[in-house]
Amino acid sequence: MMITLRKLPLAVAVAAGVMSAQAMAVDFHGYARSGIGWTGSGGEQQCFQTTGAQSKYRLGNECETYAELKLGQEVWKEGDKSFYFDTNVAYSVAQQNDWEATDPAFREANVQGKNLIEWLPGSTIWAGKRFYQRHDVHMIDFYYWDISGPGAGLENIDVGFGKLSLAATRSSEAGGSSSFASNNIYDYTNETANDVFDVRLAQMEINPGGTLELGVDYGRANLRDNYRLVDGASKDGWLFTAEHTQSVLKGFNKFVVQYATDSMTSQGKGLSQGSGVAFDNEKFAYNINNNGHMLRILDHGAISMGDNWDMMYVGMYQDINWDNDNGTKWWTVGIRPMYKWTPIMSTVMEIGYDNVESQRTGDKNNQYKITLAQQWQAGDSIWSRPAIRVFATYAKWDEKWGYDYTGNADNNANFGKAVPADFNGGSFGRGDSDEWTFGAQMEIWW
């Protein structure tokens, strides 16, 4: 008995050590931004985005507190085989008060198993909700290839000249389909599951310092038995992507060409959309029709120009041509140079221009935006974070068209359509004006 009692403290210590080691193995990653800002004409900070554009130049032009908190852990490992559990909870508030209630979004919860298939060394099996191989332009917060959501897949299969990845994910639309009631009355209240099937071939070395990635995505509306879509709904579509990445000037340049059809055009990033119906009456549900095509040509990157200068840049042309004439032509160009006074202090400027032409009206909206920021960051790279910055932003815009969301679809035949700025004596778009804002912001990723 005495021997047992003497061994007990040692056993407890060993158990505590094991539990401590396991606790220390938890990975904590994430992203956050928050700050305070004012508008020159009075009131809180207002942000500037061109009507019809899918993004905006973000430096000194973000008006919310946003965070993603990721917890993950390698829960099992034997040799080169392992299982990893990953989670991500995100939230966004308007940064107007101390207490701002919000419903967090559970954006990731997945398990990734590496090297589980003997004859596919280096590959990963995964299932669950996941940010899946996302491609974006940081300076405009624009995701041009992103099929994230609940799904499953097999990735990084070594095929000799590259890595092959296969995945299936889902994005549902509210009110996407109906069941038959009586007297030809349909009640569009059932969600429609939109499935996306993704095939990618990446890391193909085609020139010194250059790699090529090719991808095909097929999206479709997956209806339940005895349900139907509204007439004209976009049932399926394709997205084709080619991306060349070149190492240059201690950074990279990415050149991207994408072509999409029908349900893959509205978001243009790989998620299927077009079966959703915002109104019970299918007579007024025309606005979900996105049959047509999209072409996107994009070049972006980040480079170092000597010891003291870094720069991000982007140039993009996007043409969404829809059968219902509600598409757009959008082109944007911008730069973000950074001058480093010390390894932790810099001055950053961002200059961006957007131009969006309405397919329906032929009119154009444009905006110039310039931001000057003094910044303190954890390192001497344009990617170094955390960063604390004080900024001043000036924007000038001239908008000739907007979307008509007055009333509702039952009493407005133009609901959701592009109209000229002065349509029917109204005021659509943001008109011709300018404004400036100033404030302070922190940004961090880890």
Rank of each mutant, 00 (worst) to 15 (best):
G431S: 13
Y218F: 13
G122S: 08
A418T: 07
E62Q: 15
D432Y: 14
A421V: 01
F48Y: 04
L298I: 06
Y84H: 13
K163E: 15
Q375H: 11
W446C: 15
D103Y: 14
T51P: 14
W397G: 10
T342A: 00
L214Q: 01
G215C: 06
G122C: 09
Q95H: 09
I117S: 15
T261S: 09
D410A: 14
A25D: 01
K163T: 15
S346R: 05
E44K: 01
V137I: 08
F284L: 14
S304Y: 06
G153A: 04
I288T: 14
Y259N: 05
V230I: 05
V257L: 03
K340E: 00
K340R: 03
N326D: 09
Y188C: 01
E435K: 14
D398N: 08
V18A: 08
F438I: 13
T371I: 01
G306C: 02
N366Y: 10
S41I: 04
N207I: 08
N61K: 12
D158N: 03
G42S: 04
V111L: 15
T406P: 08
W76C: 09
G52A: 07
L59H: 10
S234A: 07
K81M: 05
N321S: 02
F83I: 04
A67V: 03
D262G: 08
Q54R: 01
T211R: 14
V216F: 14
M345V: 01
D434N: 14
F28L: 04
M338V: 12
V18E: 06
V26L: 05
N308D: 02
Q375K: 13
N365H: 14
T371N: 07
N366K: 08
A395V: 01
R224C: 00
G416V: 13
D231E: 10
N424T: 15
G232S: 05
I140S: 14
V14G: 04
K340M: 00
M264L: 11
I117L: 13
H300R: 02
V356G: 12
V348L: 05
S41R: 09
I3V: 10
S182T: 14
A13P: 05
R296P: 00
G149V: 09
A421D: 12
A21T: 05
N207K: 08
T332N: 09
K369N: 01
Y218S: 12
W309R: 00
A90D: 09
A221P: 03
D410V: 14
Y188N: 04
E435A: 14
M338R: 12
S266A: 10
N321K: 06
D80Y: 05
K77N: 09
V419F: 13
I3N: 10
R296H: 00
I344M: 05
G268D: 00
A409P: 12
L10P: 10
G43C: 05
E357K: 08
F142C: 07
W119R: 13
G128D: 00
G334C: 02
N412K: 08
K369I: 00
A413V: 06
K269N: 11
N61T: 14
H293Q: 13
W446L: 13
Y227H: 10
D27Y: 06
Y339D: 07
Q45R: 04
W126L: 11
K7N: 08
A387T: 01
N412I: 02
K250N: 13
S177F: 00
